[in-house]
Simulated scan of single mutants.
Amino acid sequence: MDGDIVVGIDSHKDTHYAAVLTRGGRRLGARQFGATAQGYNELSEWVETFGTPASFGVECTGSYAAGLTRHLLERGMSVAEINTTNKHARARRGKDDALDAEMAARHVLTGADAIVPKSSTGAVESIRMLLLTRESAVNARTVALQQIQDVLITAPVALRESITYKRGKGAVEACSRLRPDLSRLSDPEQAAKLTLRTLGRRASDLAEEIAVLERELDTLVTATAPTMRAACGVGPVNGAQLLVTAGQNIGRLHSEAAFARLCGVAPVPASSGKTTRMRLHRGGDRAANRALYLITVCRLRYDQRTIDYMQRRRGDGLSKKDVIRCLKRFVAREVFNDLVADLAGCGSMSAEVDVPAARAPSGVR
């Protein structure tokens, strides 16, 4: 780590607090800056008055400090993401922005809890934004469909019976075609028609929005990670989620075991007495864990090698849930190997990544 000072950043929505320490741990200064382009420049110029920065320890590099992180990386600075704080030190010393910034800098000095932040300047960041938008649209559509059913429960009998025999898209289309009499909204039947028509059209619009986003996601995911996208069971949404979890600079993950841990599919012992078994730890990115599960379920239906593996392990005495846990771990390995191959040309690899010699098969051996 070159440089004679380290900098800690306590980030907030509108302001960032910076603290500068020597390599020996002596505090040189602390100051607050605005979370704007001008503030980022002022922070960089202020830090350089103390010497050459060796590294920046920044909290919330993927949210409040995303802009500052991009600014520092563009200037060639070394940035470490600080995710945890020392609770014992906080209990002894108290808490304010200056102390939090200083603690972030001390984390950099010790090397504790500091990781390489995700890159937010490539296609994966675009995929993350589209995936976030699709998720909110799916949630809103679900709410609209549920409200249609709730309204139908108490709607007048004739109106309810004209719609409830339909299911799914048919019910939404029937609600969208209703023609309420706006001059008679004091009549509950007319009010129910207006409500159902509004909810039906909302659900239809959201369904169209979801379809557009999924098409664009498919295009981006296929262009960014064609090897992973071509694997059995990896669709545009699940592929997008795994890309977002790994990040554009996948070199920050030192091995496929680290990726498995990040996705919550790393095995941990769960034995007791005469029972000897393993389970998957319950941490990690639960959205990525769900994506791996859906890929596994898809392969259990369409991939013959996965089906054969299930039958063989069931014959060994494992339960179906235990076999699925094993399969999720295998899928995580394959996805990581595919992502390493796909993202290698993005300038995101590092010497710490264990690059596989060959791509793993899409099925399970």
Rank of each mutant, 00 (worst) to 15 (best):
I82F: 11
V6H: 04
L206S: 01
A291D: 07
G264P: 12
G24T: 07
T219E: 09
K13F: 10
Q248M: 04
I307Q: 06
V116D: 11
Q304D: 06
L292Y: 03
R106N: 15
L72F: 04
M349L: 13
N289Y: 05
D354N: 09
L196R: 03
R261D: 13
D285H: 14
P117A: 06
G264T: 13
S11C: 10
A357F: 05
R359V: 06
T219G: 01
A114K: 03
V79P: 01
C326A: 08
G29N: 07
R301N: 08
T154Y: 10
G111Y: 13
T306F: 06
V157S: 10
G363Q: 06
C298H: 00
D96E: 01
R92K: 05
K320R: 13
V364C: 09
L217T: 11
A230M: 06
T296Q: 02
A270M: 07
R184F: 05
I307R: 07
P267G: 10
T22V: 03
P156C: 09
R90Q: 15
S55D: 03
A240I: 00
A211H: 07
E173V: 14
L253P: 08
A332W: 04
T219W: 02
G62A: 10
T121M: 01
L242D: 03
A287D: 07
A240L: 02
V353H: 02
T85S: 02
K118A: 11
G345V: 02
K193I: 05
Q311Y: 05
L152K: 00
H16S: 14
A291E: 09
R282P: 01
I115C: 15
A140Y: 00
F50D: 00
N83K: 09
G283C: 12
I153M: 03
V234Y: 04
A112H: 12
V143E: 10
L343I: 01
T49Y: 01
L99N: 02
G34V: 14
A191D: 03
A351I: 14
N41A: 14
E81K: 10
G315P: 04
R201F: 12
L73Q: 06
L318A: 01
C346E: 14
S44L: 13
V364P: 05
I5K: 04
E189I: 07
A19I: 04
E208N: 10
D4C: 06
R184D: 12
R333N: 04
H281R: 13
S319R: 11
L131W: 15
K169A: 11
P156N: 08
E352M: 08
D10H: 12
C232A: 02
R290A: 15
E256T: 14
A140G: 00
S162K: 03
G283E: 11
A191Y: 11
G34Y: 15
Y293R: 15
I250T: 00
G94K: 08
G251Y: 01
R128K: 15
T222Q: 08
R160N: 09
K87G: 10
G3Q: 00
